[in-house]
Design a protein around this nucleic acid. Structure first.
Lengths: 224, 224
DNA sequence: GGCGCAGGATAACGGCGTTAACTTATCGGG
DNA sequence: CCCGATAAGTTAACGCCGTTATCCTGCGCC
């Protein structure tokens, strides 16, 4: 695993093309992350070597390592949105659409475990600031899920008074729980992931139809 | 935040009492993890300083840092079992018991976020080998959950033919999904965590009662 | 043709996990 | 009573890491 001594072919970018290195860095980091399958194996120095540049040059384009890794995964997860959208095309039954989206989500997470870990299983430092609501929403996969839940409500498949955002959060929690457990406990003797996702989503949807919608406890016990 | 220059009071253990340092290391690591709330801030050197010993001495008692951190959290999560067991005492309705256990799980995770992250949100290297099924089961909180689901089945609250282990996995995924999202996306504008847990667990349980039990897809489509 | 500045490179700092080799105190046995 | 074996550490060092301050260099415009 000796660090490759750089492609050596790189020549310095021309005047306006500093942005070029930016995407080259992202590409190299992404490939390293996929090849090694481990975040800690992706070091600034390794990325720099892969691009054919010295480590400090990275900092001309990214504030720090966290931002770089997050940018890699943000790019990767634009594909998550594409995949889940793709899974929903041509599906008429809005509840079935929830299934399809959920299954596509789990499948995608299992196919990109290390990126999934970085995006969703961290918290520290500025990563927390970088993963705030605005960025999650800009990824838009979540918003699309909210819309799909909304269609279930208007179709009468979910009770009146249901808040689509809350239900989307709940469904997100379900598929995220499955995905992250499957990723981080691979030694566990799991049933078939796809069938399990199916069953749990079916149960959850059936349950959400049967129980009264979520209400915030704001005044359920007025002021303690 | 200058590293404390060691309590300086420590004197070398006597002949048979090498194990003493073992628990002192665990104590110091646990306290550092709680104080700083971040895994990366807990370094071997800091732990050694806190105990009043030099870094290599740690390796007389732990193979590497992963094993140390995991040991810390394993200890912490024996308390998870205690807490969830406590939440279940005196609860007659077996389905209500599932609720109580789930809520206690989420609450515990939110109160010990960094330990939760280490135990459940990693995967790399030997950590994967260290978190295999046998160790999860020895933590026994999961086994207790399986038993609780079993009681629901025998009480008729869950359909005949239900596999308690599968349902326990599903419920685990639900509470784990909520917990880990709440931990790693704190900036998101969440509804009240307790009420959300309540609602999602209620829906999931209602759904599990309503839909047919999980069946493995072994021959659902014989050989592709 | 020279000069400003974008696009890098060099060198270094402090911290990290880990290892090899050495030291020291304790304790059972002669 | 002392002595050597050995448990319980220490010292010194290696190679990696992220990051910063500083310096260089050649493209493109006047």
């Amino acid at each position: 695993m000796s660090r490759a001594p750089a492609p050596a072919g790189r020549t310095r970018a021309r005047r306006g093309e500093g942005e070029l290195l930016h995407t080259q860095i992202l590409d190299a980091a992404e490939q390293l992350l996929i090849e090694t399958g481990s975040e800690e194996a992706v070091s600034i120095r390794r990325i720099a070597d892969a691009v054919g540049v010295t480590p400090p040059s990275i900092y001309l384009h990214f504030a720090d390592k966290d931002e770089l890794l997050f940018a890699v995964c943000e790019r990767e997860f634009e594909e998550l949105d594409r995949v889940t959208e793709q899974a929903a095309v041509g599906v008429d039954d809005p509840v079935d659409e929830l299934f399809k989206r959920g299954k596509a989500y789990v499948r995608f997470g299992l196919e990109h475990p290390e990126q999934y870990r970085i995006l969703f299983l961290r918290g520290g430092s500025h990563a927390a600031a970088a993963s705030d609501e605005s960025r999650i929403r800009r990824a838009s996969a979540f918003d699309h899920m909210v819309d799909a839940v909304g269609r279930c409500v208007t179709a009468g498949a979910l009770p009146d008074g249901t808040d689509p955002t809350t239900v989307a959060l709940e469904l997100w929690a379900v598929v995220h729980g499955l995905t992250s457990l499957l990723i981080s406990k691979p030694m566990f003797s799991w049933p078939d992931a796809d069938a399990l996702t199916d069953h749990l989503l079916m149960a959850t949807c059936a349950g959400l139809q049967a129980v009264p919608p979520f209400t915030s406890p704001k005044r359920r016990a007025a002021r303690r």
